[in-house]
Computed example of a mutant assay.
Amino acid sequence: MPQNPKFLNLVLLSGEPEHKLRAARAAGFGQVEIWREDIDASTPQLANALNLGFTNVQVLRDFTGAPGDERLQKRAELREFIRLAQTIGCDTIQAPATTREDCIPERIDEDLRWLASEAARYNMRIMYEPMAWCSVDNTLPLAWQRLQRLDQPNIGLVVDLFHICALGGDASQLDGIPADRIYEVQLCDMADVPPQGKEALSEYARHQRLLPGDGIIDVARFVDKLKSAGYCGPVGIEVFNDDLKAQPADVAAQRAWQALNRYWP
């Protein structure tokens, strides 16, 4: 894998999946984060024609600690994600920490071990993301503590600047995390400190994130820390923003490419 592949999360773009893939590639991105809903029969052939790779398939929600029979349903869902990932030649699935209030915390370690083992059978990796509104592991330090304890070689962290900074964190949260245990870095920004509370945070995150450099996050500090640590994994843009999504996909993709290259040329 080349150093620091640059990706765009397709959530930024409007339009049909083919249009989004073409817009991302034309802007300069070599990879995309693709959502399960954007994968169709033409995706593998189009990606091959565009020489476009996939950073991961999104997003296996609320897998860990699922109560009752839902645990088996989630395991079946993982297998469907694996099938989709194999179809498009992708080796990574994103599975954030759970947001459920009725999760069973005592099951989480066991579920992650099973997740790692099942993914490994297909040479797949799992990206574990601490989100600000998760009911467990809602910060990078907490998620890293869990992964250290479990010591599964094919589960790594997602570093998302929004989720760190939304709860008052900063780049110091990267201290002590080996670069090879970070599977992906998602850059973004925000206009101000978002409202607290899970629903308010989630609502803000899904509609009002900004491109890096357009808000208050010290993006450069994060970048300096990551480069100093020798991080060579994927780095890209994950921005949920209604105004940007209303723009033509090629325009939004080009703006994202320019913003990314200001910080990671």
Rank of each mutant, 00 (worst) to 15 (best):
F7L: 14
N9R: 00
L12P: 03
L13A: 07
S14I: 07
H19V: 09
A24K: 14
A26Y: 04
A26I: 04
A27M: 05
G28F: 11
G30E: 08
V32W: 06
W35C: 02
R36Q: 02
E37R: 12
D38A: 12
D38W: 09
A41G: 14
S42K: 15
T43G: 08
T43L: 04
L46S: 12
A49V: 04
F54C: 15
N56M: 15
V57E: 08
Q58Y: 07
V59D: 03
V59Q: 11
R61N: 03
F63W: 08
A66L: 08
L72A: 09
L84R: 13
L84W: 04
A85C: 05
Q86H: 13
C90R: 14
T92H: 04
T92I: 03
T98D: 10
T99F: 05
D102V: 11
I104T: 13
P105E: 13
E106K: 05
L112P: 06
W114S: 11
A116K: 02
S117M: 01
E118D: 11
A119Q: 02
N123V: 00
I126L: 09
M127Q: 13
Y128K: 09
E129F: 12
P130F: 11
A132T: 15
W133Q: 13
C134S: 15
C134Y: 13
D137Q: 15
N138S: 14
N138K: 14
L142S: 14
A143S: 13
Q145N: 07
P153N: 02
I155F: 06
G156P: 00
G156F: 02
V158I: 12
V159G: 03
L161A: 04
A166I: 05
G169W: 02
D175L: 05
A179H: 10
Y183P: 00
E184K: 13
L187D: 02
A191T: 08
A191F: 07
A191Y: 06
P195Y: 00
G197D: 01
G197N: 01
G197M: 00
K198Y: 04
K198R: 08
A200W: 00
L201D: 08
S202E: 04
A205C: 05
R206V: 01
R206D: 08
D214W: 03
D214A: 10
A220G: 14
F222S: 12
F222G: 10
G230S: 03
C232T: 14
G233W: 09
P234Q: 01
P234R: 03
V235N: 02
G236S: 05
Q247R: 07
A249M: 01
D250M: 06
V251T: 03
A256E: 06
A256W: 05
Q258N: 13
N261D: 13
Y263Q: 11
W264T: 15
W264C: 15
